[in-house]
């Protein structure tokens, strides 16, 4: 049996107070799958990312990365995980290559090997010529690409991207989505791509997990979710699942298994 790249089980988290940011959510992302975590603002996507990276501790439930529990064995879990947070996390005063070397060092990659991998990733993302520039000099799209190159340096098998296209223009968004799809197809990396933009989903190939008000409303391949909601498109399914009026949970906590 294939071990899921990401397995979320009974996850619950509250920032204090009555309302839970996440309420008993569960889903899986299988190796090589491109899964969109779809939810409106405030759905709990960033909280889920903070829990998956060990930055927050859940009230209950667990997150496993390739079978390693993030809370119990954070070293093993995080070594397999690449993350691009919604907030930019590059050091603006350092150059592209200095930022990447720093990250490589955090994963125990020596200078020579780090430089080799940096060249590979920057070339793949068409940024090699700009390696010596300070990040401050790059536009938003290029900064995002540097963050993706950084997230790939330690050869993760799972890539989490939290609203990576925020602030990018349409061509830059398209380029980024194409790059990450290519990574998925060519390298077999599992991707969880958090977004609230329906047009970032490729209905033919992608899986979706629809998150709304801290609960998983549906999950699975796009066609399966559409079939369950009785809608023709993922946009209609999304509207139905996240409508203000009460809707029947469709496939809640179902698995987005490939």
């Amino acid at each position: 049996m294939t071990v899921p790249a990401l397995e979320v089980e009974g996850l619950r988290h509250s920032y204090g107070g009555e309302r839970h940011a996440l309420e008993d959510i569960g889903f899986r992302v299988m190796p090589g799958a491109f899964t969109c975590l779809l939810g409106p603002n405030g759905a709990g996507k960033s909280t889920l990312f903070a829990l998956a990276t060990g930055l927050l501790q859940p009230n209950s439930g667990r997150v496993r990365i390739h079978g390693h529990d993030v809370a119990q064995a954070p070293g093993d879990a995080l070594a397999r995980l690449g993350v691009v947070f919604q907030q930019p996390t590059l050091d603006l005063d350092l150059t592209v290559v200095q930022n990447l070397r720093y990250f490589a060092a955090l994963h125990g990659i020596g200078r020579r090997e780090a430089d080799r991998r940096i060249e590979t990733e920057l070339t793949r993302l068409s940024l090699f010529e700009r390696r010596g520039e300070k990040v401050r000099a790059l536009n938003g799209g290029h900064r995002r690409r540097v963050e993706i190159a950084r997230a790939l340096l330690h050869r993760p098998s799972l890539l989490l991207l939290d609203e990576p296209t925020v602030g990018l223009d349409i061509p830059a968004r398209r380029t980024l989505i194409r790059h990450v799809h290519a990574l998925c197809a060519e390298n077999g990396i599992a991707v969880l791509w958090a977004t609230h933009l329906i047009d970032e989903i490729d209905p033919a190939t992608d899986h979706v997990v629809v998150l709304h008000r801290g609960r998983v409303r549906a999950s699975g391949p796009v066609a399966a979710v559409n079939a369950e909601t009785g809608c023709a498109t993922v946009a209609e399914s999304f509207d139905r699942l996240t409508a203000a009026r009460p809707v029947t949970d469709v496939g809640a906590n179902a698995e987005a298994a490939a």
């Binding site: 990276t53 060990g54 930055l55 954070p74 070293g75 093993d76 879990a77 995080l78 070594a79 995980l81 993350v83 947070f85 907030q87 930019p88 996390t89 590059l90 050091d91 990250f103 955090l106 994963h107 125990g108």
Partner: peptide, 18 residues
């Protein structure tokens, strides 16, 4: 606040060491 601390703390090494 700017997020770069997250990069440090998502390293697989122990948080105390980092």
């Amino acid at each position: 606040e700017m997020g770069s601390m997250r990069i440090l703390l998502t390293s697989p090494l122990p948080r105390g060491f980092l």
